[in-house]
């Protein structure tokens, strides 16, 4: 088991390296850098001016070198000019002797995530603060989504073709067909709009970062949860119906086990193995929903700054966001692998 986790972690780190490199290359493509130079300098820069700006700020090195520096495995760049020395790890313009006092490596491994050009703050501060907001949102979403999805799936799947099955399946198909930006708009229209009159909730969740209440926080949570819920519920239902037709359920029935006990003791564990993986693999999509909902409800979380960073070509911030989200996704995948093995005795003991 230990070896298995070790191997999976190795693969995970490799994946993370590949993905961050891809993100790094995409954000550091020349047109992006040019735009950066123009926003930092001025918009009427000549091509030569852009080139020299990039030179001065270490952007014209080869991609791999830049990546290494950003990661913190290569020493940060320095640039000698008439005014003094500037560099990746150097704050301001300093003399050569002063430059020696700064650390040579300063990448994300050293905890240096860079500086956000949009928010004019250190990226790490921004990311941690906003991540906290989003984690709170995600936590509530999971709390609402997973149990209700599993209950719906199990109830629908335990008697295939029954009334409960048909009505619950209809509900779950409907929710899978409603992406967040549709359900969010409909909810806002019905529950918050001043024209219709049902002013139950607030259409904006901006205040929820400080003071989450049912009124301002429920709709965003519901919107994300609903879309994912249908999918998980359908998976659970499929898995449950399959288990309920299995031979060993018939064995249990013909042993005289009562129906509720069959469902709880015999079917449930077997039926939950498949959806467990699904729930964990839902995370990349959940992140999707988070971005949409945070934009829609103006909730200043992780997804909200993603939109800001991407819209404003804030390279360092975008990179940090990518690293964190890729990391979250990979960790959930790891948990899903381990959990699958744990839930399934066929694999655990062999």
């Amino acid at each position: 088991m230990g070896l298995f986790i070790l191997r999976r972690s190795g693969v995970m780190i490799l994946t993370a390296l590949c993905l961050t490199f891809i993100v790094f290359s995409l954000t550091n493509l020349y047109p992006n850098l040019e735009k950066l130079a123009k926003t930092q300098g001025n918009f009427r820069m000549t091509d030569e001016a852009v080139a020299s700006w990039l030179d001065k700020n270490g952007y014209s090195q080869p991609m791999a070198v830049k990546y290494g520096q950003w990661l913190g495995v290569l020493p940060g760049w320095t640039y000698d000019s008439d005014d003094g020395v500037t560099g990746r790890c150097i704050v301001g313009v300093v003399t050569e002797t002063e430059a020696g006092e700064f650390p040579r490596f300063c990448g994300i491994l050293q905890g240096d995530w860079g500086h956000s050009t949009v928010l004019q703050k250190d990226v790490s501060d921004v990311v941690w603060e906003r991540l906290g907001n989003t984690l709170r949102l995600m936590g509530w979403v999971l709390l609402l989504m997973v149990p209700s999805a599993l209950i719906i799936g199990v109830l629908a799947g335990m008697r295939e073709g029954s009334v409960t099955d048909r009505s619950l399946s209809t509900v779950s198909i409907l929710t899978t067909a409603t992406p967040e930006y549709v359900s969010g708009v409909v909810f806002i229209a019905i529950f918050t709009s001043s024209t219709v009159g049902l002013k139950w909730f607030k259409g904006s969740a901006t205040a929820a970062t400080e003071n989450p209440t049912f009124e301002n926080f429920f709709l965003p949570v519901l919107t994300i949860a609903l879309y994912g819920m249908g999918y998980i519920a359908r998976m659970t239902r499929a898995s449950m119906t399959e288990v309920m037709t299995a031979q060993y359920i018939r064995t249990a029935r013909l042993k005289g086990v009562s129906f509720p006990k069959i469902v709880l003791k015999h079917a449930l564990r077997n039926a939950l193995i498949a959806p467990f993986t699904v729930i964990m693999l839902q995370f990349p999509w959940l992140l999707n929903g988070v971005v949409i909902v945070e934009t829609l409800f103006n909730y200043k979380g992780f997804g909200w700054i993603l939109v800001q960073a991407a819209g404003n070509n804030d390279i360092e911030l975008l990179l940090a966001i990518s690293v964190v989200s890729v990391f979250v996704v990979l960790v959930t995948q790891l948990i899903s692998d381990i959990g699958y093995v744990f839930l399934n005795p066929r694999i655990r003991i062999s």
Binding site: L19, T27, P31, W285, N288, A310
Partner: peptide, 20 residues
Amino acid sequence: NLILAFPVILLFYLLVTPEI
């Protein structure tokens, strides 16, 4: 798996820009 681990929205923000 590499592509699947990418949050779709991020990928779009990186890929679907005039600069790209």
